[in-house]
């Protein structure tokens, strides 16, 4: 008894920290999402007006959709690029493995802003790429769409979050036993079939983990679209920022934030159900894959 009570008291600071720093702010935000604004004062009378406004506003619906669309797209692109890279580092590099992983992470050591401005040097009208293409005569006029566009945003988002995808996949590939691939070949599976029946299912946990990380970070990224997106740089995150800042409409901002959270939670719950019903999920639950 005494021991379990000691354990309880020792764990109190952890729970307290989680409640104070994580749960409480979210609940305050939730509470605010049901309030409303009258001129410069927040009226603390419960209402669903904010949520109705979000649902009714084509702009907010579009911004939310756009943000999740960006997240999915960047997750998909980084998965396609990262999969072979992770395989290569895990299965083909022997001596220089830590060097490769360090190189992969080096860009993360510099700040967001530095990376973004470096890309502006590359993509700008007088940037490295346009100047080079003009010098070799491929184009006469600089390609304006390279910078301050949705294209620029997605190039840099992909660049920024690719390492996280590679890390997730790399771990999965490290855990993949080469003999399983040999066993598949031994049993008659060609390269494609081995990939579909053995490699992909066994690296899927890494793919899911990497995709979730990239997706969440892209959805929450504020700087990249703002500084590289130009006119397309307005995101649901920047909208929330504006609502809390210049517009002074905390309740609406809170409601948008909670709408995002709810959609994400539903999507994750759905994914979790699908995965747990699949054979892979059962293997995962049994601690096998």
């Amino acid at each position: 008894m005494a021991r379990s009570r000691t354990g309880f008291w020792l764990s109190v600071p952890v729970y307290a920290a989680v409640v104070a720093l994580c749960v409480a702010p979210l609940l305050i935000l939730l509470a605010y999402s049901f309030f409303q604004v009258s001129f410069v004062a927040v009226l603390k009378e419960p209402t669903l007006k904010n949520y109705v406004r979000i649902l009714g506003s084509e702009t907010y619906r579009w911004l939310i959709l756009k943000t999740f669309g960006s997240g999915l797209m960047v997750a998909a692109i980084t998965a396609v690029i990262g999969y072979p890279v992770a395989w290569f580092i895990a299965k083909r590099v022997v001596a220089a493995k830590s060097a490769f992983l360090t190189l992969l992470l080096v860009p993360l050591y510099t700040g967001d802003l530095v990376r973004i401005f470096a890309w502006r040097m590359l993509l700008g009208a007088e940037g490295v790429i346009n100047t080079f293409l003009m010098a070799i005569g491929v184009i006469r006029e600089p390609i304006g769409a390279l910078l301050f566009s949705s294209l620029a945003t997605h190039i840099v988002l992909t660049y920024n979050y690719l390492p996280f995808m590679v890390l997730g996949l790399w771990l999965a590939f490290e855990a993949l036993d080469d003999r399983l691939v040999e066993a598949a070949a031994d049993l008659g599976a060609g390269a494609t079939s081995t990939f579909r029946r053995v490699t992909l299912p066994l690296t899927l946990p890494g793919l899911v983990a990497g995709s979730l990380m990239v997706f969440v970070m892209v959805v929450g990224d504020y700087l990249t679209p703002q500084l590289l997106g130009g006119a397309s740089g307005v995101t649901i995150i920047s909208a929330i920022n504006d609502l809390f800042g210049t517009a002074f409409d905390w309740p609406l901002g809170s409601a948008i934030a909670w709408t995002m959270l709810a959609i994400l939670a539903l999507a994750f719950a759905g994914a979790a159900i699908v995965i747990s019903r699949s054979s892979l999920g059962k293997a995962l639950a049994a601690g096998e894959a």
């Binding site: 003999r179 299912p201 054979s279 096998e288």
Partner: peptide
């Protein structure tokens, strides 16, 4: 290639597919 040889192998540590059932 290994996949076309009428030869099958029992691997040292069995190399059973962890994501598949015994019958699979």
């Amino acid at each position: 290639p290994a996949s076309r040889r009428p030869v099958n192998t029992v691997f040292q540590n069995y190399a059973l597919f962890p994501h598949l059932s015994v019958e699979e």
